[in-house]
């Protein structure tokens, strides 16, 4: 069994109109090497599902997004994601804006093959008014409470980035927080994982094995992508790249800014991408952010 493939192989498995979830959180451990491969592809009309970071802004800027399902889009140190903001303010974005917890519940319901999970999150706000397809349900027990029935967020594909993987599809997230990648993997029909390092077969001690957060049967493809989360962080390996973020933010204020960003960083491919960001040694040595 060997699930290793290239980023281009993984993207070739995606189809126009698919619902695609992206792991990580804001500017943290986003599968950016595969995102850049999507940006180079002809894929379109995607429904993007994410705890949004720069992948959301970039996919919006490139016209890949038919609909966005998220609770936010942010670069953390730069609170407002520039391209998300620009496209959102143009009025052209179809958006399902959810509470972070509703979002989690939707992924969880999909992973458990349930139509919905009940929650109070989102009640009495505009989240329900603006998304009338999200219904409420009455508790069948004595309390009779009205609850929100968060529908399953079923994904055609999930795309994740981890620290270490093997060719069988075993994965390790060695940073302090696994975020919700395991739920993205469970919610999806297929899951493609890029990794800083791909080994033939992981052989771990018990402490290391606890960094595994979901099972390999969920993983369809493994892509080796050193610094594949750049410009986002990949704890415990490297931090986010503020200078790249500033360049990216500036592109949203320049005429033809997106095209220039694409030409400089995306179209020439990953090797050129690394060169233009000071080389892989610089990228791999970016300090972890202090919160």
């Amino acid at each position: 069994m060997n699930k290793q493939m290239t980023a281009a192989d993984a993207v070739a498995r995606l189809r126009d109109g698919m619902t695609v979830g992206f792991g990580g959180w804001g500017p943290r451990r986003k599968p950016m090497a595969i995102v850049r491969e999507i940006l180079r592809s002809s894929l379109k009309d995607l429904t993007v599902v994410a705890y949004g970071g720069p992948e959301v802004g970039m996919l919006c800027a490139a016209g890949k997004v038919k609909k966005l399902i998220c609770g936010f889009a942010t670069l953390d140190a730069i609170p407002l994601e520039p391209w998300y903001r620009k496209i959102r303010e143009s009025g052209s974005l179809e958006l399902m804006e959810l509470d972070e917890g509703m979002f989690q519940w939707g992924l969880r319901a999909a992973g458990m093959r349930l139509p919905f999970l009940p929650t109070r999150c989102g009640l009495a706000t505009d989240v329900t008014r603006l998304n009338p397809e999200i219904r409420t349900i009455r508790s069948p027990y004595e309390d009779g409470e009205t609850l929100l029935a968060m529908p399953a967020l079923k994904l055609d594909a999930a795309i994740l980035h981890v620290n270490v993987a093997d060719r069988l599809g075993n994965t390790l997230v060695t940073g302090p927080d696994p975020y919700f990648d395991h739920l993205f993997a469970r919610a999806a029909d297929a899951c493609y994982v890029s990794a800083e390092r791909v080994e033939e077969r992981l052989q771990l001690d018990a402490a290391q094995a606890r960094f595994n957060t979901f099972e390999r049967y969920l993983v369809s493809g493994v892509v080796e992508a050193p610094c594949g989360a750049h410009p986002t962080s990949c704890p415990s390996d490297y931090g986010w790249d503020m200078s790249h973020f500033k360049r990216y933010v500036a592109s949203a204020a320049e005429p033809g800014g997106w095209q220039a960003y694409m030409e400089e960083f995306v179209q020439p491919g990953e090797a050129a991408y690394q060169d233009r960001n000071g080389g892989i040694e610089r990228m791999a040595g970016l300090p972890l952010p202090v919160f």
Binding site: R85, R88, G91, M102, L123
Partner: peptide, 16 residues
């Protein structure tokens, strides 16, 4: 909402 004057962060965890 459809075409905001200023898009902010998003609802984040505020509803919950």
């Amino acid at each position: 909402y459809r075409q905001p004057k200023a898009a902010m962060l998003g609802v984040r965890g505020l509803p919950g």
